[in-house]
Design a protein around this nucleic acid. Structure first.
Lengths: 183, 183
DNA sequence: AATTAATATATAACATGTTATATATAAAAT
DNA sequence: ATTTTATATATAACATGTTATATATTAATT
């Protein structure tokens, strides 16, 4: 259900098309939430049928008409209700593929596992680099009008930096331990 | 696809029923992989139709007959192939609900967000406590016959301790920052 | 005495996530 | 000159995850 709440939340910032929402998922919140375009359109449809959003068509030349979605008071109420109700159990499906691969490490060649851990580090390092840039960038915006939103955004960036940093640290420690195993 | 690989991997340890697999998911690998019983039965069916596992019925009195699944050489080959092929992009859907809630922090009462962060810490702390016990317990088993498997299991436990520890640290830092905001 | 938990398998219905495809144009890159 | 990227919406098919339900017995709890 939370993707629908994420969409509602983003629409409280400003009315948007599905395409614009997708670019926000890809460029702004991708380190803690991802979504496929097909999912976004489907959920926008669901939200509209529930009366949580309304759409307005803006004709365009050369391209398909824009369909701009706005959150309704009803949708805002539903979002607010979700925000204020913490679930009994957080975080649904836990699926950590690098952990699964490591768990079955006795079935792989050590060199292959090391190779995979190094790839993992590389992938996480790229995310950390992007988050560092975001962090520096938002640091300049401390005192402008959207400072409150930025404050909370920076908290989530900090989480990414800490958690992905811990993942990298773990993988590096694994490589050390595997090295000792060989030597 | 990875749940099927997780099941295959667990069946390389020993033949098991769906019910036994579920208890492993719940009690042993729950910090990095979870699965519903209905999913396990469905995937066992899929794996059987692919020829990756075979089942053998063991009659029981008083309870439904046991259906014990064993991995086949073909299934073992598929598992091995998966293990040796690192995906282009790791980790599918990223969905971090506490991050999503924090991101929209400007829409909640500070006290409510603090309450939710404290619940988050509590939830994660319980997992960390369980992992610490597992870590201590597996420490004794260092020199027995299954030492290789235990070695890799301990690497995954270490990941849990590091990552969940970082999440707790983050939430505590958030609480501090929110406190400063008020004071 | 009655309810709940544990043992055991399995399906149905639904919700959510992924991949592929269709349409259409302009601008940028190779 | 041709391909890719960006703009834009949308559906189909499939894969995966969640919740509820059905069946059946024993042991433990209230």
């Amino acid at each position: 259900m939370s993707l629908q709440h994420a969409i509602l939340g983003l629409l409280t910032h400003k009315p948007m098309t599905g395409y614009e929402l997708k670019s926000i998922f890809d460029n702004s919140v991708n380190y803690f939430w991802t979504a496929q375009l097909s999912q976004i359109y489907r959920d926008l449809g669901t939200l509209e049928s529930k009366g949580y959003v309304t759409s307005q068509i803006k004709p365009q030349q050369g391209r398909p008409d824009k369909k701009i979605y706005s959150i309704t008071p009803k949708g805002d109420g539903a979002f607010q209700k979700w925000l204020n109700n913490f679930p009994k159990k957080l975080s649904i499906a836990i699926r950590d593929e690098i952990c699964l691969r490591t768990f079955f490490g006795s079935r792989i060649q050590l060199e292959e596992l090391e190779f995979q851990l190094r790839k993992f580090i590389k992938e996480k390092q790229e995310v950390v680099n992007a988050l560092r840039m975001m962090d520096e960038h938002t640091d300049h915006c401390k005192d402008n009008t959207s400072s409150e939103k930025i404050f909370f955004q920076r908290l989530t960036i900090k989480k990414g930096l800490l958690v992905f940093g811990a993942e990298i640290q773990w993988a590096e420690e694994c490589l050390k331990e595997l090295d000792e195993l060989k030597g």
